[in-house]
């Protein structure tokens, strides 16, 4: 390898990339944003994928960020910025949570209530706008990920109806955004 080539790469790495709209919105909300899926725990990262035209820009761990201030709340876990064709950024929210009984549905809905209340706060205005863009792009805003364990929410059941009325689909073991 030539010295010149190494120099070029070192120089390129040193240039800080422009923060994405999601990162900017997270900073305004007082959250720590990580690049790509970085804020998502490793065990869940493989369960969250994007289609060929989509790219995860940044992510936040809402649960971790708000734990100290709201230890007893039903906190939602992750927010992710997603870019389509390198533009049109939007935000989606993912909650890894077991679906081993219908009782988990009320917990998920409580977490969604908490998240929606957060998004209504002035500091979260930009995150809310990015979330609205997801629905406008035809991508569901909120996702329940049940990577491990049995899924016992029966399609067509009362619990499934409660979820859909809140804009949530049935839990899946793998989330593939497209």
């Amino acid at each position: 390898m030539s010295t010149a080539g190494r120099k070029t790469r070192t120089a390129a790495a040193a240039v800080p990339s422009k923060p994405s709209a999601f990162e900017c919105a997270a900073i305004i909300a007082g959250l720590h944003a990580s690049k790509g899926k970085g804020a998502v725990k490793r065990q869940y990262q493989a369960g969250i994928a994007s289609g060929p035209t989509l790219k995860f820009t940044a992510s936040v761990d809402m649960d971790e960020s708000c734990k100290a201030a709201e230890p007893d709340s039903h906190r939602w876990d992750y927010g992710l910025g997603v870019e389509r064709n390198h533009e049109n950024e939007f935000a989606v929210w993912v909650e890894p949570h077991p679906a081993s009984s219908t009782g988990e549905v009320s917990k998920i809905i409580a977490k969604l209530d908490w998240l929606e209340r957060k998004l209504e706060q002035p500091a979260f205005k930009d995150l809310k706008a990015l979330t609205q863009k997801a629905a406008q792009a035809g991508v569901p805003r909120f996702h329940w990920l049940a990577i491990t364990g049995d899924i016992r929410i029966r399609p067509g059941s009362r619990e499934a109806v409660l979820l859909s009325k809140r804009g949530l689909r049935l839990p899946t073991r793998h989330l593939a955004l497209s």
Binding site: T131, A135, P140, G156, L163, K165, L168, R169, L170
Partner: peptide, 17 residues
């Protein structure tokens, strides 16, 4: 039933956004 749930979730998402 799954398609119905998904369709309602989509409409809810769109309406609320």
């Amino acid at each position: 039933a799954i398609r119905t749930g998904d369709a309602i979730a989509t409409v809810v998402n769109r309406y609320e956004s």
